[in-house]
Amino acid sequence: MREHLTSPLTLGDLADAVGYSPFHLARLFRTTVGIPPGEFRTALRFHHAKRLLIGEGLSVTDTCFAVGFDSLGSFSSRFTSLVGVTPATFKRLPELVEGSTPTRPYVRGADRAFDGVVRGTVRTTRCSAIYVGLFPQAIAKSRPVAGAFLTTPGPFELLGVPPGTYRLLAAGQPPGADMIERLAPDAGTLVGAAPAPVVVRAGAEVVHQDVWLRPRYATEPPVLVALAALSMPQL
């Protein structure tokens, strides 16, 4: 998939390459990775788009075509949905983030009309910027339902969580991470997840959700959400 980001690639093509039926491959892939093959490939394409925008300095239009889209409107809409900000805003994030890195923990609540609470602890030894969030799926895309930013490993509290079933995901970056790594995380970012889905019920607390951070496996989707933007209330 990584070598054919812009080429037409169907589930049948993938199944033929590994010798499985499309149905069996789709089921096995989702069981192993947590999301369908098509969604995983989409994540790879937009992760590449993020790096082209801020690492290679491509324009939004050039990036759109470079990752295989022929409609700028469709590309921009999908990018915004997955990353949490528009491509144009994402391209400006390095200058916006540079002078506004939080110096204390910052908590983002989902909706204070809800009273669900999730508490836990992030465990790691090498990170100075840690993002924790509740997501509908096992992929960090768009903005989390509720999230927290920590400057050191330790306890977190997610407030205002509506009832539902979520995946608790976290990403941590070491001191001195460059701007590309901070906004389009790759090998330098540690990731982790609660071992099981988090079920939030009205008026109840979900506690003891420990998350251990580690290097991302090749079978895991990239972090799509613009991490540094999560700790900036103005975005």
Score class of each variant (00 low, 15 high):
2 R>F: 10
4 H>E: 06
10 T>S: 15
12 G>M: 04
18 V>M: 09
18 V>F: 11
18 V>C: 13
24 H>G: 01
25 L>S: 09
26 A>S: 15
26 A>K: 13
28 L>S: 13
29 F>P: 05
31 T>A: 15
31 T>R: 15
32 T>N: 08
32 T>C: 08
39 E>S: 14
39 E>N: 08
40 F>P: 03
48 H>T: 08
49 A>G: 11
51 R>K: 15
52 L>P: 08
57 G>F: 12
57 G>W: 11
60 V>E: 12
66 A>P: 04
71 S>M: 03
75 F>T: 00
78 R>A: 11
79 F>E: 03
80 T>R: 14
87 P>V: 00
92 R>V: 01
93 L>D: 10
97 V>G: 08
97 V>L: 15
100 S>K: 04
105 P>E: 07
106 Y>S: 06
107 V>E: 15
111 D>H: 12
113 A>P: 02
114 F>L: 01
115 D>Y: 06
116 G>K: 04
127 C>Q: 13
130 I>P: 09
132 V>H: 10
133 G>A: 03
135 F>M: 01
138 A>S: 12
139 I>N: 09
140 A>N: 02
141 K>Q: 14
141 K>R: 15
141 K>F: 04
143 R>G: 02
145 V>Y: 07
146 A>T: 03
148 A>Q: 07
149 F>M: 01
149 F>L: 05
156 F>Q: 04
157 E>L: 13
160 G>M: 01
161 V>G: 07
168 L>T: 02
169 L>V: 00
172 G>H: 03
178 D>P: 09
178 D>T: 01
183 L>H: 08
186 D>R: 12
188 G>D: 09
190 L>T: 00
191 V>Y: 10
195 P>S: 11
197 P>R: 09
199 V>A: 11
206 V>Y: 10
209 Q>P: 03
211 V>M: 07
213 L>C: 07
220 E>F: 05
220 E>K: 00
222 P>I: 00
222 P>D: 04
232 M>A: 12
235 L>M: 07
